[in-house]
Write a protein that binds this DNA or RNA. Sequence first.
DNA 1: TTGTACGCGTTATCAG
DNA 2: CTGATAACGCGTACAA
Lengths: 344, 344
Amino acid sequence: MLQKQKVTIYDISKKIHVSAATVSRALNNNPKISLKTRELVIKTAKEMNYKQNHLAKALKSGKSNNVGIIVPFINHSFFSSVIRGIEEELTPHGFHVIICQTHENIDNEMDQIDALLNIQVDGIFMSVSKTTKNTNHIKKILEEGTPIVFFDRKKDIKGVSSVTIDDFKGGYIATEHLILQGCKKIAHLAGDFNLGIYRNRYEGYLEALKAHDIDFNSSYIIETNSKVENGASAVSKLWELDEKPDAIFSAGDYTALGAIQELKRRKIRIPQDVCVVGFSNEPFTKYMELPITSVDQTPVTMGKIAAQVFLEQIKGSQTITIEKKVVLAPELYIRNSSARNLSL
Amino acid sequence: MLQKQKVTIYDISKKIHVSAATVSRALNNNPKISLKTRELVIKTAKEMNYKQNHLAKALKSGKSNNVGIIVPFINHSFFSSVIRGIEEELTPHGFHVIICQTHENIDNEMDQIDALLNIQVDGIFMSVSKTTKNTNHIKKILEEGTPIVFFDRKKDIKGVSSVTIDDFKGGYIATEHLILQGCKKIAHLAGDFNLGIYRNRYEGYLEALKAHDIDFNSSYIIETNSKVENGASAVSKLWELDEKPDAIFSAGDYTALGAIQELKRRKIRIPQDVCVVGFSNEPFTKYMELPITSVDQTPVTMGKIAAQVFLEQIKGSQTITIEKKVVLAPELYIRNSSARNLSL
DNA sequence: TTGTACGCGTTATCAG
DNA sequence: CTGATAACGCGTACAA
């Protein structure tokens, strides 16, 4: 069972009495080789069941044909979907995808980056963790000459490409939708403001209010950590106000869910009394008996495009680094938690 | 920005006037080296910011420190959670995790296996696709001397370890729970019988009926493809029967959801008229307004244990292959879709 | 305890 | 068009 003895180009060369170099050339479609030898080489290679040793090639070339993906958690629907997109786009090009988790911890993020650079990945895709403020560890990637592509959660670093959705617009259309339902007192359950995505969603919310001449009320803004419980406690806090909200735009689906649960507990009707909109279009939102309106982030597409950006990057001449910022349009999925005209 | 010139052990050796071999030994804790030289080497290595070239080491040793994971889809909650478990267990040991998708297609499965063997992964974790009948491509992995660990969906191959849950027991406890709710006419929405897991869940169902002296009714068995729509159509089919079921045990959560939706559409009360139990404990089951009872598969734990099995495997002497079959206990999460005594 | 020399499998350079 | 040879960076017998 230990028959690990691989056949090498040298074995082939001996068999057909040519040099290993010739075999290598034939196999790599090097033009200066006679058709006859090429065919013979390819034929015998097949016969002997030759398999190229990628490790040797990697050592020689410095290219491993591996890329790394760094995310907070692999098993969060959004991230696993982005990973899926990257994998599907890169596999046909011979790349393999290595995944790492940070658990939202910057120390892990630094370790994972070091590890990926050590094994000489050809590129790194990442969504920064919530605790990442300093970006020196990220700049180190660039100094090594390894391309990075940010997706979703990015940092502004010169020369780094990114693929994100337009979170500002997402916040805007979500809020505007609520306004169009007749809501005027719209609360916002914000996410961690250390992340640009949440700041942008908030800004979009503000802009929509402004555009529709609705006064901003700072007591309607609750910063949450994206957990279900936080959505519920946010509602509890909001309902202590004299002026109760008539709508909630949550920057995350889990907090939207928690909010809905608490609203129901209080016998508040949705969407008649209060409309709720979430963000991310998590799978569960559409399965609910009261399906939740949410902003879709097209994660698989995001992954595919991030992969394409990476492929372009390494294809171009190595000396220039192309900085490409792709911004995808978010899409609002209107469901019963907010759609008064659709409601049962 | 192209400063890719890495420092090698040779650079270190020149600087402190020893041989590269000495440097290598010092760095690898080889005992026969003087404390003094070792410290000097380590110190200069740090100063020069030396990083071991894993590619070269891999070529030399034949070990890449990479493992492959092959799953149908990365972004299915169950699989991404198993992957998470594997990653968390293996990263501290210096392994990296490469992921591949089969899309439930055996051709992709074969391609992915070939690709992983080509890049010399040190082990492969896999959950076979639904269309996998023949196992020659899997045996090829063994012939190469690469360890495999199956998780969840396995094939019986001599010498291959696996980590699964006790699907038979899962089917049994789910069904027995329904019986204890007073149900006597229990339908079963089965999964693809080409997969052992679904056959076992079905067998567990049968055994529970038998143990409680309930007659088996073959028209209560509907084979599905695990989609939501299938759950709904299964109910439609079942409700054409003269003797309507009073409970449904679904081998998957999505079909359970579809069944519930269709039951509601028909104004059938859950759990008063019909109790429903699903399988997998998908995240959405607990978020529903009518939370769905389901059998939990402890996917993260499954991943961690699969990783441990792999680590044991490669630690032992290479000549013997240990075959270890770990079977985890499933756990029933009882919720309102079936709990008559809990119900609102 | 340390140094020398070689090989892992490939590709690239330079002759011929 | 083809062959010999030298790297890529590391680890390790073997020798000293």
